[in-house]
């Protein structure tokens, strides 16, 4: 039963479908805001376009560059995919507890985030192209910049809840959401998420007009399909984390006595919050231009780190 939960609902399959839905929503919102129509052929309103893209890419031939590290290039993408896929099953969806809860799973989730970036830089370096080498340099600089504000902003809810497990944090939010006492933390988390996801204004490691495909330049076929899927899954993962930490997870305004109905309602609440956070990220992403890596580092070190520290102090005082 637990295995079924892990693999189907609310586990991997469920989130992979949400990842596809996120990509569709991202493309559609961006398109509509720019006066275009976006995907519209595959499926109703083009809903199946991301799936079609994935299948097409996965069925293509993978070209491995001559001087690249073949072992890493072959086995790296599944490992890269594993990072958000493992992290996401710790997110509580149907109730206050996730499928496999652990008293310290917040730390594990943070490790997964770091591991994802590590895999990305490893993949970029092993491809051994000039563009990917530069991109990895940028990726690492960006990582060192955003990681501290990200972790600091994650600590605030943990302190408020007095708990280091995601389930505990969600339970602590049954009365009020932590976004009310930690609004700056939420904002910093969203900005750091944009950096983690390499979305504008922080799409510096994958800036196509400067370094072609970023660290993904030398990827093709199956590997590229999985890398892209992983990016979408990370998208869902970070949005879900924001929902869990700041927006009360699956907690909703109305409680039901019937257990199944409660599960369904919890899932619906969670999804609504998830897509709202996702939508927020899409809008921010569409409204901004890409900044330079030095500007990004400056932003994170001089503005966001002090801000999140101030938030931390505030939270400690509140408590």
């Amino acid at each position: 039963m637990q295995l079924l939960q892990l693999l189907v609902f609310p586990g991997l399959t469920f989130f992979v479908w949400i990842a596809f839905a996120f990509e569709w929503l991202e493309r559609k919102t961006a398109a509509r805001m720019q006066g275009r129509v976006g995907p519209m052929i595959a499926g109703p309103f083009g809903l199946l376009q991301p799936v079609a893209d994935f299948l097409k890419l996965a069925s293509k031939e993978q070209i491995i560059p001559k001087h690249s590290e073949k072992f890493v290039l072959t086995w790296g993408p599944p490992l890269y995919f594993a990072a958000p896929a493992i992290g996401i099953i710790f997110i509580p969806v149907i109730g206050n507890e996730s499928i496999i809860g652990h008293p310290l799973d917040l730390l594990f989730v943070l490790f997964v985030l770091a591991f994802s970036t590590l895999m990305a830089s490893l993949l970029g370096y092993s491809a051994a192209g000039r563009y990917s080498t530069i991109a990895v340099g940028r990726l690492v600089v960006q990582y060192t910049s955003y990681e501290i504000p990200l972790i600091l902003s994650v600590i605030s809810p943990a302190i408020l809840a007095g708990n280091l497990s995601l389930g505990g944090i969600v339970s602590a939010q049954s009365n009020y959401w932590f976004i009310l006492s930690a609004p700056i933390g939420f904002a910093v988390f969203i900005i750091a998420s944009l950096a983690e996801l390499e979305k504008p204004p922080f799409d510096i490691p994958s800036a196509k007009t400067e370094i072609v495909g970023g660290w993904m330049t030398d990827f093709s076929g199956n590997a590229l399909a999985y890398v892209k899927l992983t990016k979408n899954l990370s998208y869902v993962f970070l949005s879900a984390l924001a929902v869990t930490l700041f927006l009360g997870g699956p907690n909703g305004p109305v409680l039901f006595h019937q257990i199944i109905l409660q599960y369904v309602m919890n899932t619906i609440y969670f999804m609504v919050k998830l897509f709202s956070v996702g939508f927020l990220i899409f809008v921010v992403k569409t409204a901004l231009a890409r900044i330079r890596i030095d500007q990004a580092a400056e932003l994170f070190w001089t503005i966001l780190t002090p801000l999140s520290l101030a938030q931390l102090g505030l939270v400690i005082l509140l408590r």
Partner: peptide, 13 residues
């Protein structure tokens, strides 16, 4: 952006 999203898209199908 939101104003544009409310308008008809200009794409010619």
């Amino acid at each position: 952006m939101f104003k544009t999203a409310m308008e008809e898209p200009v794409t010619v199908k």
